[in-house]
Design a protein around this nucleic acid. Sequence first.
DNA 1: GCAAAAGTGTTTCAGCTACACCCATGT
DNA 2: ACATGGGTGTAGCTGAAACACTTTTGC
Lengths: 256, 256
Amino acid sequence: MSLSPSLNPHVSVDCSIFGLNDNALCLLLINRNGAKSTFQNADNRFGLPGDLVRDNENLDEAADRILRELTGLSGIFLHQFKAFGDPLRIAKAKDRSWLEGVRQEPDARVITLAYLALIDTSKVEIKPGSFTKEAKWVPISEIKDLVFDHNEIFEAALLALREMIQIYPIAFKLLPLKFTMGDLQSLYEIILEREVDKRNFRRKMLHSGLVRALTEKQYGVSNKPARFYVFNGSSSEELYSSIVNLKMEGSITVFN
Amino acid sequence: MSLSPSLNPHVSVDCSIFGLNDNALCLLLINRNGAKSTFQNADNRFGLPGDLVRDNENLDEAADRILRELTGLSGIFLHQFKAFGDPLRIAKAKDRSWLEGVRQEPDARVITLAYLALIDTSKVEIKPGSFTKEAKWVPISEIKDLVFDHNEIFEAALLALREMIQIYPIAFKLLPLKFTMGDLQSLYEIILEREVDKRNFRRKMLHSGLVRALTEKQYGVSNKPARFYVFNGSSSEELYSSIVNLKMEGSITVFN
DNA sequence: GCAAAAGTGTTTCAGCTACACCCATGT
DNA sequence: ACATGGGTGTAGCTGAAACACTTTTGC
């Protein structure tokens, strides 16, 4: 931060990075204390990965840079879903030590652009970024008190994810290349916080043309081995253009 | 601008304000040249109403303030839908005169939060704001070259409006208190750029419970007088919670 | 053989779609 | 009488929802 030549002290991006670990939806959180400050022992709080935007990069590039620092990967799925700009959003006393450890102008008002990111955790090894002491996956049910307004941002991200997963084929971004129908269904159930009917789910997914069955099956599982599937989509980012109907039972519609 | 005590020189809001005039969907555009600069004769270009965010207001308040300046009304429907932050978004040479007339730091990089606003044009008389030379409604089909990246922002606003109108009951924000089914249907057709079946539309709207029929009818029209309806919704802003299915024939769905 | 998850079809019902004619009014 | 937009009903079809039993494997 302080080393970077041309930062915009008033605009940041924060990333709500989702990933699956042991069948639990997790958020990637960081602890910044101690990176370069005298506040090692202040508190042990966590927050969303984020940074001020540099003058020579656009917002998407800033978000991509943050993801790259943490994962080593570029081009991870990112979606900017909302801006948070309350004048006092970073002014709470208990956030002060974090701020001072990280910002050159701790009193500057900062508007943040919130991004949603989806990661296949089987493909990355998380490493603390240049200014991060610790980075870890936290199951979303165990997320407690985050810095600043990051709880609010995370809640909004979860809502955005829940809506998007029913419109765009982005669930696959959270899964490894090969997955079973059970994997896919339980991912939907976790995000939607609701059970869906197995037969209806399979029919819908297969009929949508989004997945292709492989001949390969599970091996060594203590039940009937499940078939593997792959996402049948255009490799990169034509996801937004391929709108599909992924609404599950009980979804609300308005006007057809 | 220069008079305002505490502006954030790096964050602005821009409003795509939609309204109906003579059955045409229009955007409210302003011309800022001449307000306080020497550039009266520079060019005659128009742009979206917007301003830098003040240090003591949040983003929604800034957008509301801009609407209030132009219409005298507060509490107009506003929805923040995207941030635009290209480093060079306001750096085009032909935008220079506008910038210098308006900004204290014309070279500062500015990230803008784009808002969508819906106005009942029968209720407001537009007046140029404090720093606006001219404000006028322009049919969206006649919108030409706007300043900065405002064409891009407007296009995104129109897409956002088109999506939202099929999910949330916000079309009524564009109509007077009392309206006919024909008014409502033609509004949907204008925004969706597609015709919908009259009988299906009426059934859907009435069955949705969103409108209530009055006994009052048109008077003095040269055809069968149409019945008036009113929006049956909670007065204020529980619109977001009342999701309805307003998708029209031919809409795309993904997964139910 | 038992536990555990995979896999598979059918029936019912709501609601979307398509479609054509008469009505009330002003001119 | 004619032009204009308002107003109305139905039949067919698609797809969502609900639902239970058999299969394969490891232990």
